[in-house]
């Protein structure tokens, strides 16, 4: 299958890319990994007049900590995160998700930021970014713009990213003392979207949860921020079974799945409940150094 015809632009600087995007007047698309965009173009679900390929721009593959933030550049591939020792040591939720995004071949090409910009509620990285409170740094004709991962998606496949903006980097606060995190995903087979997946980040002071954040994947029209479930954990002990049970129930209440080939609505809701409980416990064990 061939995509529709398009003009191909390969800028070598961000300035050029921003100009090309503006010149595209709403009918140009940015391509990083292309692992969602190209299939959509082949199926003619998308037929942009211009493709602006970021792959020739140097400096967009930054993956490092600086000034209290983990920086993930626009050309950092899923596989880069999967293989990173820094990620494996300090960001277990990213390490978990990196092994479960799509399949190993797609992971060699697709990017973290591209997944966010794609705005798919089935995307694993949107949940991870939301759970970790990422700042999404974009650039447009009027300069730099910062979006929050918490409310980045506005509707299915729509985000706050302006048509003239390029998502350049995600910045994630470095872990605090006592922080633990986890991402648990149920998929029918490798490469499928999640039937449901849950991301959890907690901070412990001793056994007491002082901070919590929970995100849900593919169980609603948007990536879901299960704020009430997270808030219910604060002040509770990580060993309090009833508190974790309640967080699971509240996360389930926040989910809005629909029945499809991946399962019935009731099944998916229960997945959210169970995965939330497991992810909270796993994040807790990691925060206490009991589990990698």
């Amino acid at each position: 299958m061939l995509p529709s015809t398009f003009d191909y632009v390969a800028p070598t600087s961000l300035d050029e890319a921003v100009q090309a995007l503006a010149a595209g007047a709403g009918d140009a698309k940015i391509m990083a990994g292309g692992q969602s965009l190209l299939p959509m173009m082949k199926l003619r679900l998308a037929s942009p007049a211009t493709i602006i390929d970021l792959n020739g721009i140097a400096g967009l593959d930054t993956l490092e900590e600086s000034d209290g933030m983990l920086r993930i550049g626009a050309l950092v591939r899923h596989a880069d995160l999967e293989r990173s020792e820094l990620i494996a040591e300090r960001y277990p939720i990213i390490h978990d998700a990196a092994q479960r995004v799509a399949d190993p071949l797609i992971r060699n090409r697709g990017t973290f930021c591209g997944s966010l910009a794609h705005g798919d509620p089935a995307g694993d990285w949107a949940t991870v970014a939301l759970t970790l409170g990422a700042e999404l740094h974009a650039v447009g004709p009027n300069g730099a713009v910062v979006h929050s991962a918490l409310d980045f998606q506005t509707s299915m496949f729509e985000t706050q990213l302006g048509m003239d903006q390029i998502l350049v980097e995600a910045r994630i606060p470095v872990p605090k003392a006592g922080q633990g995190s986890a991402y648990l995903k149920i998929e029918r087979k490798v490469g499928d979207y999640a039937a449901a997946a849950v991301g959890v980040m907690i901070v412990l002071d001793g056994a007491t949860i002082t901070e919590a954040s929970i995100g849900l994947t593919n169980v609603g029209p948007l990536t879901i921020h299960a704020a009430a479930a997270a808030a219910s954990l604060v002040g509770k002990s990580i060993d309090a079974a009833a508190a974790i049970e309640e967080a699971g129930r509240l996360a389930m209440e926040a989910s809005q799945p629909s029945s499809d080939l991946r399962g019935a609505e009731e099944y998916k809701k229960d997945l959210v409940r169970v995965l939330t409980k497991r992810a909270v416990r796993k994040a807790g064990a990691r925060a206490q150094g009991k589990e990698a």
């Binding site: 191909y8 292309g34 190209l38 299939p39 493709i51 390929d53 071949l105 060699n108």
Partner: peptide, 13 residues
């Protein structure tokens, strides 16, 4: 050196 799906990359890339 990295395995990729050649149906999901543009030749020009």
């Amino acid at each position: 050196g990295r395995p990729v799906k050649s149906c999901t990359i543009l030749a020009v890339q």
